[in-house]
């Protein structure tokens, strides 16, 4: 009996133990799919590690940049900013204007702001000969070729109005009118020549500091009702000086015009 059983077992063992069956293509595809999943995991791991290292290096660099001992500059608090010497008045003016109390009282047209009327504006009148001289010299294509002098760009950048006025006055003391200007006036057209001569006169007349001041005082004294009227119209700003300058530039006699209107007003 055991012999028969052994023979049966041997028969099946001999035939089936090493029996092989060819797998289908589907099995191979499944196997490759499993392999792909297995091989993808390490790749993703590599990518994740690379991203983590990159992130950490960037973060570390940023932190090192933040923590690194830079030379500490004495930066005052925001409320205690001290402006540059030349900008100090301007900043104070802006701060004063920014205050709400300045906007609470709107300026009425009939009000004359005394601080603006009484303020001296010497720079405007004094600037004329200096600004016109280079304009005429470089007027080749109809456009003014104004070039600032080197001293002016250096000295006048960070100065207030009052300081610029004093600087300009000092410069007028040192400068003299260009002797070539009369020649240019003679070469120009008759109408333009008259204007140029007036300008040259003004330039020569305003060459001295005392004369300028005297002229300003005279202009203040001779400020007529027309000037006050224009000041009222302009909201209190006395623009009579600039208008006078424009009138002078146009070559119209200022005294006769204002005197007639003063008579009419009276």
């Amino acid at each position: 009996m055991e012999k028969g059983k052994d023979s049966l077992d041997d028969l099946f063992r001999a035939k089936l133990h090493d029996w092989e069956a060819a797998p289908s293509d589907q099995a191979l595809a499944k196997f490759r799919a499993h392999l792909g999943q297995q091989t993808d995991r390490p790749r993703w791991g590599i990518y994740l590690r690379f991203a983590a290292v990159l992130f950490l290096s960037l973060t570390g660099g940023w932190l090192a940049w933040q923590v690194a001992p830079t030379q500490p500059q004495a930066v005052p608090p925001v409320g205690q900013v001290t402006p540059a010497p030349g900008l100090a008045p301007a900043l104070s003016d802006k701060a004063a204007l920014a205050h709400p109390s300045d906007f609470s009282k709107p300026v009425q047209p009939n009000e004359v702001q005394q601080h603006l009327v009484s303020e001296e504006q010497p720079a405007l009148a004094v600037n004329i000969p200096n600004s016109t001289a280079p304009l005429i010299q470089g007027q080749s294509d109809g456009k003014p070729n104004v070039t600032k002098p080197a001293d002016e760009t250096k000295a006048g950048d960070n100065l207030t109005k009052a300081e610029t006025g004093t600087v300009m006055e000092k410069r007028l003391d040192n400068e003299k009118p260009d002797p070539d200007l009369p020649k240019l006036a003679t070469l120009a057209a008759p109408e333009q020549a008259e204007k140029i001569q007036i300008i040259i006169k003004m330039g020569t007349e305003a060459s001295s500091k005392d004369e300028i001041r005297e002229e300003q005082e005279q202009r203040k004294k001779s400020r007529t009702g027309m000037g006050k009227f224009l000041a009222r119209i302009n909201g209190g700003e006395d623009t009579s000086e600039s208008q006078k300058v424009e009138i002078e530039l146009m070559g119209v006699s200022k005294d006769s015009l204002f005197k007639k209107k003063d008579k009419k007003n009276r």
């Binding site: 090493d18 029996w19 092989e20 069956a21 060819a22 797998p23 099995a27 196997f31």
Partner: peptide, 10 residues
């Protein structure tokens, strides 16, 4: 896989 798959499938 090529070496042992047939035997394993058997």
């Amino acid at each position: 896989y090529k070496k042992y798959s047939a035997k394993m499938l058997g």
